[in-house]
Design a protein around this nucleic acid. Structure first.
Lengths: 250, 250
DNA sequence: CCCATTTTTTAGTTTAGGCTAAACTTATAG
DNA sequence: CTATAAGTTTAGCCTAAACTAAAAAATGGG
């Protein structure tokens, strides 16, 4: 009786029962995985995501993923077809963007307000993103001046969940030798990789030149130093080219 | 096998396996309840705490409390004797103080850095206290200048978990009519009560005069206004008297 | 000092989100 | 067009932390 009443109230107010931390994380990773591995860094979940990819990302067994996907499908947050993968629904997409907004705002705040290194903010934000109120979100967004990107160069969805326009970027691994540009995004969540990038000075905004691609990786120049960047890392480094003509694509 | 090895490692490093949010909350409330209802506001858990009191505070059934207390006793965090109540062990006391430090530092930070009203900070801190790292704790403590009290006037345990010295305070409900002093602590976690105190201007530091005690509550003066404060609220308002002689207690 | 009331415990469920092992699909290679 | 590999799902089990119902213990008033 009571529960029916509350359910009706939620329906009337168009509210969702609160999602668990795990559920939010799954939705976020479906969005991120669905947008990965393509030539653009836009966050659109065109692609369908596999159970296995999700299992690896969540550090969980595939069987556990199946269980969770069924639950999320019942909640109307994903479209799930057995053996074929998942994709976010409208509602699920909104939740994922909300979580991402929290995550990236927190990263920006930790960096700018509390002096965290840009490579340190991810893991702290990972824990906090599920536990802040809308009031907290609003206050740090305001303190930061409603930033469009976080310290890794990732776009921050606006309060209305639109994604800001980003400059055209390409993965370092796909550039022509001789190209020069600035780091736009460091698109990894792996702490060791982040530490390495930070150590090499490869943070968003840094100027970098691609010397050549070799079998062992890509040779690059950063300031006066030259490095050999393994392909796995050159994959996740997005560069905004300097000398390109953006004015007249026609 | 593996688990034995890890257990041994933890023992060697004198580490505890991480506690759940619920476990931390129980320990915190044992500390708070054990220090309540006495003439002092020092945080010492001399008293033993009943299952029932804990159940009310945690919004949970007594049976659930019993279950949790048994678990905490196994972990060596409380001394628990059936039918007689609980008390924190050394180790449990330390955990409780750590959680309290997190909570109160967060409250202070929300108030001073992000402009939250002092009556708004409790519930946000309640969620965040379990999810911040030691690095975060250290950074906000430093930003704040290592404060000794939070916006409600509650003492903040230091990094080494010592409690700062507080001025001698007494509950409003126990003062003699005619006394004047300043609000030292607003010792409630109830949001409605906090809102009311805030509305009346009864925040830490505010000057207040006790006019008289009546059956319906205590008549007070705050600035130019006079109010009748129900006994339940006069209970939780701690006053630092102005005209008392603290210099020579002998 | 006994009985009624209150408090606490016991025993058995529930829900969320993991796990393993086995079974089943889909894709791929002959 | 099968046979096998790779990927996925099912079934069954586990733990944490809540719950309920009922039994047992403690307490306090007459």
């Amino acid at each position: 009786m009571g529960s029916l009443k509350y359910a009706a109230d939620r329906l009337a107010a168009n509210q969702r029962p609160p999602l668990s931390e795990a559920q939010e994380d799954y939705l976020k990773q479906v969005l991120l995985l669905g947008s990965e591995g393509r030539g653009t860094d836009r966050l659109e979940d065109t692609t369908t995501v596999s159970t296995q990819a999700l299992a690896e990302r969540m550090q969980v067994r595939p069987a556990s993923v199946t269980g969770m996907l069924k639950k999320l499908a019942e909640l109307g947050l994903v479209e799930y077809e057995a053996y074929r993968g998942v994709r976010l629904t409208q509602a699920g997409h909104r939740v994922a963007l909300e979580v991402l907004r929290h995550h990236r705002l927190i990263e920006a705040y930790l960096h700018q307000a509390l002096g965290y290194g840009w490579e340190e903010v991810h893991s702290e934000a990972e824990k906090l993103e599920h536990h802040i109120s809308e009031a907290f979100e609003a206050r740090i967004a305001q303190w930061l001046g409603h930033p469009s990107h976080d310290p890794h160069g990732d776009a921050i969805p606006s309060a209305t969940l639109e994604l800001p326009q980003s400059l055209p970027n390409r993965r370092l691994v796909g550039l022509e030798p001789g190209s020069t540009g600035r780091v736009a995004r460091v698109a990894t969540q792996d702490q060791d990789s982040l530490n390495l990038f930070a150590h090499l000075g490869l943070k968003p905004g840094a100027r970098v030149e691609l010397l050549e691609h070799a079998a062992e990786g890509s040779r690059i120049r950063v300031g006066k130093e030259r490095y050999l960047l393994p392909a796995s890392l050159a994959q996740v480094l997005w560069i905004h080219l300097e000398e390109e003509n953006h004015a007249n694509p026609a």
